[in-house]
């Protein structure tokens, strides 16, 4: 039972996102890099749509209202939300690309963040409960998120925007592994 030995899972929609980050990767003895799985594009699509809807509304409001009540020149204010939209469009993709997770033999890895990077390792044995949640908007886009809870509240291990089938598979697998390796406090 060697850690770091990747499992046969995690192929669905795998983006080959930036392999080993640090140069110090292969220094561990006989340690293979984990197989990372990215998020399906549905999440990006949903977030972008929400961005377009909200900022589009804002742009229309910013374009129309000042122009009606003040000079027409003020319609130029609409460019502000539009610029924000363009920036957000790119940012959302960068953020989405940065999310990835890996199921290893004994623990789950979650890596995320572009500027503020965070990488979390949760040993399966420490899992207290696994939660699959899906809000109305998420459901419409066929998405679900999986959240892991350990006894430590600081553990923030959430994988958003998964395919419901994948989320359920992950939940079942995590629960099964958690039971097999249960360790408690």
């Amino acid at each position: 039972m060697e850690t770091g030995s990747p499992d046969d899972t995690g192929t669905a929609g795998a983006t080959e996102a930036a392999a080993p980050r640090e140069a110090a990767g292969p220094s561990g003895p006989a340690r293979r890099e984990p197989v990372w799985t990215g998020l399906p594009p549905g999440l990006l699509r949903m977030r972008r749509l929400l961005l377009v809807v909200w900022l589009g509304l804002l742009a229309v409001a910013a374009g129309l209202l000042p122009a009606l009540f003040l000079e027409p020149v003020w319609a130029a204010l609409a460019f502000l939300p539009l610029a924000l939209l363009g920036w957000g469009w790119v940012m959302l993709e960068r953020n989405w690309r940065s999310w990835r997770y890996a199921e290893r033999a004994d623990d789950l890895l979650i890596s995320r963040g572009v500027l503020w990077r965070e990488e979390t390792v949760v040993p399966y044995g420490r899992m207290q409960l696994v939660e699959v949640t899906s809000g109305p908007v998420e459901r419409h886009f066929g998405l679900a998120s999986v959240q892991l809870h350990t006894a430590a509240a600081a553990t923030d291990a959430t994988i958003p925007g998964l395919d419901p089938a994948e989320a359920e598979r992950l939940r079942d697998r995590l629960t099964e592994l958690g039971e097999a390796r249960s360790a408690g406090l």
């Binding site: 500027l115 990077r117 990488e119 390792v121 430590a152």
Partner: peptide, 30 residues
């Protein structure tokens, strides 16, 4: 007693090639 391990790195730390490692315990202390 370690429940989960996290590595965090902000932009300034990354520029300096530094990072923080957090260890979470069951007593809600990190």
């Amino acid at each position: 007693k370690v429940q989960s391990v996290r590595l965090t790195q902000g932009p300034w730390r990354r520029a300096l090639r530094l990072a923080d490692v957090h260890v979470d315990t069951g007593a809600n202390k990190t």
